[in-house]
Simulated scan of single mutants.
Amino acid sequence: MKVLLKLGLFYGIIYLFIEESYLNYPEYFPKTKYDFSKNNLSKTKIELGRMLFYDPILSIDSTISCESCHSPYNAFSHTDHRLSHGINDKIGKRNAPPLFNLAWKSSFMRDGAVNHLDMQSLVPITDSLEMGNSLGNLLYKLKKNQKYINMFYEAFGDSTINLDRVLKSISQFELTLISKNSKYDRFRLGEDHFSDQETRGYELFKKNCSNCHEEPMFTNYKFENNSLEINQVLLDSGRFSITKNSNDFMSFEVPSLRNLSYTYPYMHDGRFSNLFEVLKHYSGPKFNYVSLTEKEIIDIISFLLTLNDKEFILNPENKFPVNKLLK
């Protein structure tokens, strides 16, 4: 990592290097956007965040956890339904996005409603269609739980449980969710090669898709209108609902294309069940920028599959903390 070049200049830089050692990623990844100086990573805080992420105690009735909609086996998204599910079987209005490489993001939610990772958890915790909790009740439940009293003491040096510590601990765990071990990444490192079909797909991708899905993160982190018609049931207008700017109508966050095999269905409302449907949309009459034959679509899909990161999906360090949560 680039931080290593600064090792030894002064104590603060050494400390930063130690903290960022939890974030191993390739040199060709861009600079992270998260300010680690305000939330230095530590093993105990990451473990506390992992515990909170998987614990349904965050919801009003202790039935829904973050993992309920963000399964580690689906790149921290869900695939069994198009829209997120909450307490009392309530149905949300959007497909739950995957969670990885969050340190490189500066806005969150599909409409960019949240501008900092530390604040993002507030939305599902308090949303009546998701966890339906109040912040006061959440803190009350945690303060009554001896397991959490002990873990906050281990993480922060005292047993004070407040909202700032809860949110930053969840962020710490989420910041460690880094997808970087796909075939594409091995190709970039010179450790693997593409097949002929994958190579054709890569060239087609660079020609037709890379304006929005920039390498190596495969997103430009912007909000774009991709010619989807508004869902007449959900009436979700995307970024427009936040900015009230007519230019933002039906604009949604450009998602990363990593781990697509694990994150179907696709789009903000899960309207497309497979990648062929997605690319048919982009090569159809409503989307004027791309013209693809079915063979070219198949070649692009072949390349997109090289972005799957099986190591990330199976990494035991980001899974349910059985020994602590069920202890």
Rank of each mutant, 00 (worst) to 15 (best):
L9K: 13
G12P: 01
F17E: 13
I18M: 04
E19K: 06
S21W: 07
Y22A: 09
Y25K: 13
P26E: 07
P26R: 11
K33I: 06
F36Q: 03
F36K: 02
S37L: 12
N40Y: 09
K43P: 00
K43S: 14
E47M: 11
L48Y: 07
R50Y: 07
R50P: 03
M51E: 09
Y54Q: 04
D61E: 12
T63E: 15
S65V: 09
S71E: 13
S71K: 15
N74P: 00
S77G: 14
D80G: 01
G86H: 04
K90T: 12
K93I: 15
P97M: 09
L102G: 06
A103Q: 14
A103T: 00
W104A: 03
F108T: 02
M109K: 12
R110H: 14
D111W: 03
D111G: 04
L117H: 05
M119F: 12
S121R: 05
P124Q: 11
T126R: 12
T126A: 09
L129F: 12
E130T: 05
N133G: 07
N133W: 03
S134T: 15
N137T: 10
L139K: 11
Y140P: 00
N145T: 14
Q146W: 03
I149C: 00
N150V: 07
F152K: 04
Y153A: 12
Y153E: 10
E154N: 14
A155M: 08
G157R: 10
D158S: 11
S159W: 08
T160G: 03
L167K: 13
S169Y: 03
S171Y: 02
S179L: 05
N181P: 00
S182W: 00
S182K: 01
Y184R: 01
Y184N: 04
D185N: 11
R186N: 13
R186Y: 11
R186K: 14
F187A: 05
R188V: 11
G190S: 10
S195I: 05
Y202F: 15
L204E: 09
K206E: 08
C209R: 03
E215F: 13
F218N: 02
N220T: 10
E224A: 13
I230S: 08
V233C: 01
V233P: 00
L234N: 07
F240T: 04
F240W: 15
S241L: 13
I242S: 07
K244I: 01
N247C: 02
N247V: 02
F249E: 13
M250T: 06
S251R: 15
E253F: 14
P255I: 12
L260A: 04
S261V: 02
T263S: 04
P265I: 08
P265S: 11
Y266E: 06
Y266D: 06
R271I: 08
S273W: 00
N274W: 06
H281D: 06
H281W: 12
Y282H: 13
G284Y: 11
P285E: 12
V290T: 14
E294H: 11
K295I: 08
D299H: 05
D299E: 15
I301G: 04
I301R: 05
L304D: 02
L307A: 03
L307Y: 02
N308G: 04
E311L: 09
F312H: 04
L314V: 02
L314A: 08
N315L: 08
P316V: 08
E317V: 07
E317R: 12
F320L: 12
F320V: 00
P321S: 06
V322C: 01
K324Q: 10
L325I: 15
